[in-house]
Simulated scan of single mutants.
Amino acid sequence: MLPHNRSFLMRIAVLADIHGNVLALDAVLDDLKQRGGADLVVNLGDCVSGPLWPRETMERLEALDLPTVRGNHDRRVAVDPADDQMWPSDRYAQERLTAAQREALFALPLTLEIAPGVVALHARPDHDEKYLADAISDGQLVRAPLAAIKRRLKGLDASCRIVLCGHSHRAELFRIPDGPVIFNPGSIGCPAYHDDTPPAHVSEQGSPHARYGIVELGQHPDRFEAIAVDYDHEAAARQAEQAGRPEWAHALRTGLMPG
């Protein structure tokens, strides 16, 4: 139950980039319950792709029936039949989902207005794979110039005051001058990754914790909280090793990619 006499009008829990890590998802849901729950829980996509527990994660999410936007890996997992271009994490998940589950992932919307002026998306309003708030510098993700981010938001309604996004796996909170607040809670289930799409780069949260966020909409300034939850990341790392993905195991243990 939520506390009585609360000072906010609505509390939103923000989940992103679960990537088939049902252990991390369950830890986040337990932590949220201990914090009093939320009026709304939103899922920012990339639900199941990864060498972990895609089917179990999908079943958990189906039971929760959360408002969810489509991530790039949700779209890629849905490709049928798998082709030579399918990334290993997507293939692993695809082979373990039903056709109906894959179709449900593909049918997810790019954006959702989950509350007045609050828009949820995975990457950008018009694309599920291009970074919104990030640029690549020396093989690392860094925050993009604010002017570039503002251009990437073109097309959003002028009434939008908060954008909830994922994709980069990097927790971020900043305000665009004369524009919305951008909030990325970080990744629940994949604390680091390497993307060899030119220019190749890594994203690293720097620790194995499962990340999520809470947004409290109120009569006073809105409140944002980025939360890091400990969980049995060693069990997740062993699962990745059994699937033949040692680099995933390293990332799950450390929040870093192998050096």
Rank of each mutant, 00 (worst) to 15 (best):
R55K: 03
V48P: 00
V77F: 07
E204G: 08
L153C: 12
E95V: 10
L112Y: 05
V202A: 10
A63E: 04
P198F: 09
P177G: 04
H167Q: 09
P3V: 04
D157E: 15
R211A: 15
D157P: 01
F8P: 10
D74V: 02
E204A: 10
H73N: 12
P191V: 02
P81N: 11
P51Y: 09
T57R: 07
L61K: 07
D222I: 12
C47D: 09
G155T: 08
A100I: 06
D232H: 04
E103N: 15
G36A: 12
E234P: 01
E172H: 12
P54H: 09
I162K: 04
P258G: 06
R143V: 00
R238A: 11
E216D: 15
Q94K: 14
T98M: 10
P177A: 08
R75S: 10
E95T: 10
A243T: 13
N21I: 02
D83L: 00
L15S: 05
I188L: 13
D128S: 13
N5Y: 08
A147I: 13
V42G: 04
D83N: 10
L52D: 02
E62W: 01
D134L: 14
G255S: 04
M257V: 12
R151T: 15
R151P: 00
Q94A: 15
D138I: 07
A235Q: 13
T98A: 08
I176C: 05
D222N: 15
H194N: 03
A123M: 10
H4L: 08
F106N: 11
L173E: 10
G71V: 07
L15Q: 05
F183Q: 01
K154T: 14
E113S: 13
A99T: 09
H19G: 01
V118T: 09
G45C: 01
L40T: 00
I214L: 12
